[in-house]
Amino acid sequence: MSLLARRAAAELAGTAFLVIAVVGSGIMASRLSPNDVGLALLENSVATGAALVALIVALQPVSASFNPVVTLVEKALGLLDWRTAGALIVAQFLGGVLGTVVANLMFGLDAVALSAHARSGGGLWLGEVVATVGLLLVVFGTVRSGRADRVAFAVGAYIAAAYWFTSSTSFANPAVTVARTLTDTFAGIAPASAPGFVLAQLVGGVLGFLLVRFLYTSLPVPAASESAAADRKVAS
């Protein structure tokens, strides 16, 4: 199997398990704490952050971005070519859809049920911009500071926290956003709301890229010999 195929498989599997964690823990939280949304969100955020740490640690040696925005910024930084970036992004979207279907089925729901949870408005879109900029700063700032071995813990902690300090509960990931339109549960987002979130995430991606380039201009991008591990980053 080629390296690209292995990387795409890792992105598909990792994104699928990430979405299973997001959607599945959301369903479990809403069932265990049906009358306490705050407690349900806490349960959802802790499970998601912990899953991210585990998935990144496990898959980082192959590929562990799990996020099209992160992959596009990797391309912009010269860490990927377009063929590789395109294959990884397709795998991320497919993995996200697979993860939602599996999570729905695990809890006895229809494999696909479009969400009725509307999430729109300027405040929520701004929250997605903020969440995505922060995620990119954590991912690439950690790597470009020579601490790639700490990315998993930094990202997991950031996403768990961003569930709480952003108005949108920090989707910060187009593949996850699209996947979450397919579940009418705690973690769902209505299909009509998804384009606004994705656009905000892309805006955040541009701003995050510019911020990383501005802050770390004196630090080189990891050399080819090091980037096989250092450029496999993630998000939620």
Results as ranks from 00 to 15, higher is better:
residue 195 P to I: 00
residue 63 S to C: 04
residue 45 S to F: 06
residue 137 L to Y: 12
residue 32 L to I: 04
residue 118 A to D: 15
residue 23 V to D: 12
residue 216 Y to A: 00
residue 19 V to L: 13
residue 220 P to C: 00
residue 168 S to P: 14
residue 152 A to V: 02
residue 146 G to L: 08
residue 102 V to Y: 14
residue 7 R to A: 04
residue 159 I to N: 02
residue 23 V to S: 08
residue 11 E to C: 01
residue 25 S to G: 04
residue 227 S to K: 14
residue 222 P to F: 09
residue 147 R to Y: 08
residue 160 A to Q: 13
residue 160 A to M: 15
residue 219 L to T: 09
residue 152 A to I: 07
residue 2 S to W: 04
residue 113 A to F: 08
residue 138 V to A: 08
residue 153 F to P: 08
residue 176 V to T: 13
residue 159 I to M: 07
residue 192 A to C: 09
residue 117 H to C: 03
residue 31 R to K: 15
residue 137 L to C: 04
residue 176 V to Y: 09
residue 59 L to M: 06
residue 213 R to M: 05
residue 182 L to G: 02
residue 55 L to N: 05
residue 226 E to W: 09
residue 61 P to I: 00
residue 221 V to S: 10
residue 129 V to F: 03
residue 223 A to I: 00
residue 214 F to Y: 11
residue 75 K to R: 13
residue 158 Y to W: 15
residue 99 G to T: 03
residue 120 S to C: 01
residue 138 V to L: 13
residue 136 L to Y: 03
residue 125 W to K: 07
residue 127 G to A: 06
residue 196 G to L: 10
residue 65 S to M: 07
residue 39 L to F: 10
residue 11 E to W: 12
residue 101 V to P: 11
residue 3 L to Y: 01
residue 79 L to T: 00
residue 1 M to D: 01
residue 104 N to G: 08
residue 81 D to E: 08
residue 234 V to R: 05
residue 219 L to I: 05
residue 110 D to V: 02
residue 233 K to G: 03
residue 213 R to V: 00
residue 46 V to E: 02
residue 86 G to Y: 02
residue 3 L to D: 07
residue 218 S to N: 07
residue 56 I to W: 01
residue 127 G to I: 05
residue 106 M to K: 01
residue 112 V to F: 11
residue 124 L to K: 06
residue 138 V to H: 02
residue 5 A to R: 15
residue 60 Q to H: 07
residue 34 P to K: 14
residue 87 A to D: 03
residue 6 R to H: 11
residue 233 K to C: 03
residue 140 F to Q: 05
residue 48 T to V: 11
residue 73 V to T: 03
residue 110 D to N: 15
residue 211 L to H: 08
residue 235 A to Q: 07
residue 40 A to R: 12
residue 90 V to H: 04
residue 179 A to R: 03
residue 92 Q to L: 06
residue 90 V to W: 12
residue 139 V to A: 06
residue 115 S to N: 12
residue 159 I to W: 08
residue 213 R to L: 01
residue 80 L to T: 00
residue 82 W to P: 08
residue 197 F to C: 02
residue 192 A to K: 14
residue 183 T to R: 02
residue 222 P to W: 09
residue 87 A to K: 14
residue 75 K to M: 10
residue 176 V to S: 04
residue 27 I to H: 05
residue 110 D to E: 14
residue 117 H to V: 01
residue 134 G to W: 03
residue 4 L to G: 01
residue 134 G to H: 05
residue 143 V to P: 05
residue 201 Q to W: 04
residue 115 S to V: 09
residue 36 D to C: 06
residue 202 L to T: 03
residue 64 A to R: 06
residue 98 L to Q: 04
residue 116 A to C: 11
